[in-house]
Simulated assay, not measured.
Amino acid sequence: MIMNKMYTYTVFDVETPNRANDRMSAIGITVIGGGKIVDEFYSLVNPETHFDYFNTKLTGISAESVKGAPTFPELWKTIEPYMSDGILTAHNAVFDMGVLKKCLTGYGIEWKPTAKYLCTVKIGRGCLPDMSHKLNVMCEHYGIALDHHQAASDSRACAEILLRYIDAGYDVNSFIRTFKFV
């Protein structure tokens, strides 16, 4: 069996305020270390931009909800250590990684040029090709609680799915890719 349990995975999920997908309105982070969940973090984020009706309806997060929440640059000081430790992981990771990149770029925050990441959708398609890999479908399949489109719940559910893949003996690390931030 591949020793995936030796790695640290920083599983995250973002919610966005509008279709531009260049700002966050919430972020959930779930850290896996030693083959189990060892830490969790959640925050609303003031995106300093408008909210589309669709996004507010989907996530329940509105301009009113984020009054008093930290902006991304304020929050980055807190989440950067999480994001810098371990392999970044998300469900449909290209979306979440893209939002992270746009936030960093939009606020002129320099980070690292690249980061290793995993996508649980891609792992699922490779390991379980004959089923849908939508987050809610995977959670139903594995009996994982989900409050869909809530960043804390989505990141935890994604972490639980990753742990199911690891426990089943799938070589999830063969799915590691590199994301370019510059």
Rank of each mutant, 00 (worst) to 15 (best):
G124D: 00
T78P: 01
G126T: 02
G106D: 13
S132M: 08
Y82K: 04
V99A: 09
Y107L: 13
G108I: 12
W76Q: 08
K101A: 11
N92T: 02
M97P: 00
C119Q: 09
L118R: 03
E110K: 15
H133M: 09
C103R: 03
V121H: 06
V121D: 10
W111M: 10
F95T: 05
E80S: 15
Y117K: 01
K102H: 07
S84A: 14
H133T: 09
E74P: 05
L100F: 07
G126Y: 01
C127W: 02
I109S: 12
K77D: 12
L104A: 11
R125N: 09
C119F: 05
S84M: 07
I87A: 02
I79M: 04
T78N: 09
E74F: 05
N92S: 10
A90N: 11
D96C: 12
K102S: 13
P81A: 09
G108W: 06
D96H: 06
M97N: 06
E110S: 14
L118E: 02
W76P: 03
M97I: 04
K116M: 11
G124N: 00
D96Q: 04
P129Y: 00
C127I: 07
L75E: 04
H133R: 09
I123D: 01
L128I: 10
Y117R: 03
M97K: 02
L118T: 02
K134N: 14
E74I: 08
R125Y: 03
L104D: 12
K112A: 07
Y82E: 03
R125I: 11
L88A: 10
F95I: 11
V121L: 13
D130P: 03
T105P: 00
T78E: 15
K77S: 06
L100H: 01
F95Q: 02
G106Y: 10
A115F: 07
T114K: 14
C119M: 07
D130G: 06
T114L: 09
P129F: 02
K101D: 09
P81Y: 07
I79S: 01
E74W: 06
P129E: 02
K116D: 14
A90Q: 06
I109P: 03
Y107C: 15
L88T: 06
C119G: 10
D85I: 00
F95N: 00
H133Y: 06
